Amino acid sequence: MQTLIINAQPDLTNKAHFSTKLQEMFLTKFAAQFPGATPTILNLYATQIPRIEEVQLLKVWNQPTLAADAAALAQTSADLLAQFKAHQRIVIVSPLHNFNVTSRLKDYLDNILIARETFKYTADGSVGLMTANYKVLLLQASGSIYTNDDRYTSLEFSRFYLQKMFEEIMGFDQFYIARAQGTATLPAAEVLTAAAQDLDQVFSQFYV
């Protein structure tokens, strides 16, 4: 089963980040479960991701005939979409930025949330097209804790946004999350132990 890891960590080469450690945990479990298999890894901050700007995606979407630069952008966007659709297991690795997804991850989603490709409009509302046993797992690191049902819980928009986009808009079968949380307040060993337990709980379900 093809797995795509979408790494949305801006400080990509810094191995000390908890989101990076989450990815390493996942890769260790993946290698044990699927010896010989290799997931595809897309590092968003090391990749050209077209943006919704006048000279980028808006130029592509609004012009019937494309100049060379716009055609190249259109091809890049199309390649990202094709890669996404070719993988039934999507793993998103990301820190929480101001209670939401990182900016490059939002740009990426703008290239895959495409009508008639990953969802379609109907008279009764949008319908997801990614229904052939697609699942997504969010590996998220955060300085605070968002599972205590306190004032921070309702502010964590990234999980809500991603779950709604993947399940309700694109039609994914299931959304999972494993967290390394409290990184700003708790000892690192405690954070990583809890994160490993989180990942253990969802990993087998993710690949059912």
Rank of each mutant, 00 (worst) to 15 (best):
T131V: 15
I145A: 08
T122P: 06
D107W: 01
V127E: 15
P39S: 10
A123N: 12
D110F: 02
L73A: 06
T102N: 08
E54Y: 03
P39A: 11
Q75A: 15
M130D: 06
T131I: 13
H97P: 01
F119L: 05
K85E: 08
L81H: 06
S144V: 04
K135I: 03
S77K: 13
G143W: 08
D79P: 00
R89N: 13
H97W: 15
Y152M: 12
Q63V: 00
A72R: 13
G125T: 07
E54Q: 09
A46R: 10
A141P: 11
I90F: 04
S77T: 09
N98Q: 12
E156L: 05
Y121A: 04
Y146D: 09
D150P: 05
S94V: 10
L139H: 07
L109S: 01
D69M: 01
S144T: 10
R89L: 06
A70I: 06
D150F: 05
W61I: 04
H87K: 03
I112C: 02
R51Q: 10
V93M: 10
A70E: 11
F157L: 13
V60D: 04
K120A: 12
A46Y: 01
R116K: 13
Q88R: 15
L66T: 03
N133R: 13
G125K: 08
T131L: 04
L57R: 03
T38Y: 01
R89V: 04
D79C: 01
R104M: 15
L58R: 10
L81I: 03
N133V: 02
R159W: 02
R89S: 11
R116V: 01
L129D: 10
Q140W: 02
D124I: 02
L96K: 08
L109K: 01
L73V: 14
R51N: 06
A37D: 13
L129Q: 09
T47V: 05
R51G: 00
L80C: 05
P35S: 09
D124T: 14
A70K: 05
D124R: 11
F84I: 03
L57E: 01
G125F: 07
G125W: 08
D150K: 03
I52P: 00
M130Q: 11
S158H: 04
R51E: 07
I92R: 10
T76W: 01
L155H: 08
L80F: 05
L58G: 00
R104F: 05
L66M: 04
L81R: 06
S154M: 05
P50S: 04
E53G: 01
N98K: 11
Y45K: 10
